[in-house]
Write a protein that binds this DNA or RNA. Structure first.
Lengths: 118, 118
DNA sequence: GAGACATATCAAAACCTCCGCACATAACAG
DNA sequence: CTGTTATGTGCGGAGGTTTTGATATGTCTC
């Protein structure tokens, strides 16, 4: 079996190329965290919430009205965004105001919008 | 306004803010495409495939060996990545070699890795 | 304290996704 | 042609996700 040729015999793969890539790959735990991050962004409701928060902080009730969904559903998604540290929140009296936690999320969503617009 | 304000179960707290944000939001169809794009990236198997392809093109069988999964499972995910235009492919004899379709995907994955490493 | 209001969480149904099996298709060797 | 190898795909089950109504928790006003 030659080094220069993929033989993809599947029982006897080009072992060195495979092992080289395996060595370069990030750890499974890192990949899982990356996938989890993208998964959080990969729901239309959450995408819409994040786009809403691009304009500034907003309370749960108003977000529910922007999305046309129940407060319960919105609260659930906000909880997910909060646990993933994609949004920050502060309480002001009876209301809880949510906002984007940092510029990284903003940049990511804007990249996504750009990607779609081409 | 095409938005259905009656599908929400509570009153608007800051009416002007809500209506302003609704006006600024990208169209639902755009948001759906963005969410779909992130959803594709949001699976550990697909993330791993994309990281594998960061090193260069590779055939299905070798990818399956890198991931330690069946060729069927890998082919399913490659099909999804292909239909979403995240990967390109070329046939060479019996083998099909996959590669990243453009720098945008690479940049996005690298941003994701960066985000996780902090 | 009681009552009103905003948000969070629980439970369950409807829905979706991933993966392996089995088979189909494609390319090649003989 | 037949057989082998590499890859693609329909189907179905196990497991996960999203949504809602009901209920719980927190916060204010009185």
């Amino acid at each position: 079996m030659s080094h220069n040729k993929y033989s993809c015999d599947c029982n006897i793969v080009h072992r060195e190329a495979v092992e080289q890539v395996i060595k370069c790959l990030p750890a499974d735990e890192v990949l899982a965290r990356v996938a989890e991050f993208f998964k959080i962004l990969g729901d239309p409701t959450r995408t819409k919430i994040i786009c809403t928060l691009l304009e500034g902080e907003m309370c749960v009730c108003d977000i529910a009205n922007v999305l046309g969904m129940t407060k319960s559903a919105v609260s659930h998604q906000l909880g997910m965004l909060r646990r993933a540290d994609l949004v920050a929140f502060r309480r002001e009296g009876k209301n809880v105001f949510y906002s984007l936690s940092d510029g990284h999320v903003r940049g990511m969503i804007e990249s996504g919008l750009e990607h779609v617009h081409q």
